[in-house]
Design a protein around this nucleic acid. Structure first.
Lengths: 214, 214
DNA sequence: GTTGATTTGTGAATCGATTCACAAGCAGAA
DNA sequence: TTCTGCTTGTGAATCGATTCACAAATCAAC
């Protein structure tokens, strides 16, 4: 298999969301041009992105919406559900816990951990907050993804333990750079950095295309 | 001024964080090599990134940490503070409200809005949640940045109003693609998309470098 | 069945970002 | 002052992603 640009994967995610909208509205086929417009990219980009994974369209016709949804779900690994653990039951952690969309997409939070003893106990929808020292036990029982939502200075330590326990995918909300060994995928969501990007744009009068987002 | 890659701006943010750590530990100078190692990039990249904005180092010596911190703060527009409004006082919104780090970086949340009448009233640290229809009034009184944390289907409508009120920087947490006119900068934080990236990596056995994050 | 109107899939060309490689500058030693 | 060791700043080379452009496939009309 060739090397797939990370940006392509991000766009597939977006295409899928747009296709679901179309599907909900009963639209049956869509052209690369139409999809590109909605995604804020070009028709060639859409076709190239898809072509990495196979051929899904019909020349002269476009793409079948239901078929493409199915294909993208398969490519993105969304046909199964994923077992997720959340480490850190602070503000961001609890916000994520209540984020019902995740479950709907197949990301099921099955365990929550926190270092603060006063937090251990029942909380939110049928999930009991566990003590940090149970981490390894629970993770090795088949957790696929760990969400790290602890203070910056604790994050690398948690990630090390998580990786040692065999987890191969980590989503980090701590505002710090983390390192993981080869074979483990790490994504970081850094709100502070995004705000600094906005600050930069404001002081440097960025004229650039409006939708730098996504 | 030449065109600056967006990725460069993101890295400047990271360098600044690393430099502050060094500064706190009393380190006075740093080489591009040292900084690159901490940032997970290359020395050449560090020097190229900085060279877009001027020359900050001394050949043979490296960079003065305090001076570089000052320079980066200036480049990123962090020497002043920014007036921020938050639209949507749901889970994510309140998590952000409590995120003390933002204020420390100079992003001061000055107003909070919500569409739900039952939420209007006093809440969190000395901020009163306001009704949606006060939005235009408050924004035009000098808000620099708006954080959108409303449901996906309401987000574009809010952004349109925000832009019409003259705001030129928006941070979006709604899981949807938004469009803004030229001259307005939009950044989107999309947790669902990040998780789908992890899902993709898991099913496609991505061998790639460990620290794909950041 | 042939024509015309579409739209895909993809090699080739272009564009943009990263990396290389080295001259130039600085500090300290002699 | 000159020499040595080190590190920056930057044009040139490389690498990777996006865009172009067109042959091939499909459908509808006649």
């Amino acid at each position: 298999m060739k090397k797939i640009p990370e940006s392509t994967v991000g766009r597939l995610s977006l295409y899928l969301r747009l296709l679901r909208d179309l599907s909900d509205r009963g639209v049956l086929t869509v052209s690369s041009e139409e999809l590109a417009t909605r995604a804020g990219t070009t028709a060639a980009q859409v076709r190239k992105d898809l072509s990495f994974f196979g051929t899904f369209g019909k020349r002269g016709l476009g793409y079948s919406v239901p078929e493409l949804v199915k294909a993208l779900r398969s490519i993105l690994g969304l046909e199964r559900s994923w077992r997720v653990a959340l480490v850190g039951a602070g503000k961001i952690g609890t916000a994520l816990l209540g984020y019902q969309d995740l479950r709907r997409q197949g990301f099921v939070i099955e365990a929550v951990f926190d270092a603060d003893p006063s937090k251990i106990g029942r909380k939110w929808n049928n999930l009991q907050i566990r003590a940090d020292d149970e981490l390894e036990d629970v993770l090795s029982q088949g957790i696929d993804i760990v969400i790290v939502a602890v203070p910056a200075d604790a994050a690398q330590g948690i990630v090390n333990r998580v990786v040692r326990a065999g987890v191969r995918a980590v989503l980090n909300f701590a505002p710090t750079r983390l390192t993981v060994p080869e074979g483990v995928t790490l994504k970081t969501v850094n709100m502070a950095a995004e705000l600094e990007g906005l600050s930069y744009a404001l002081v440097n009068e960025v004229w650039r295309a409006g939708d730098a987002g996504e």
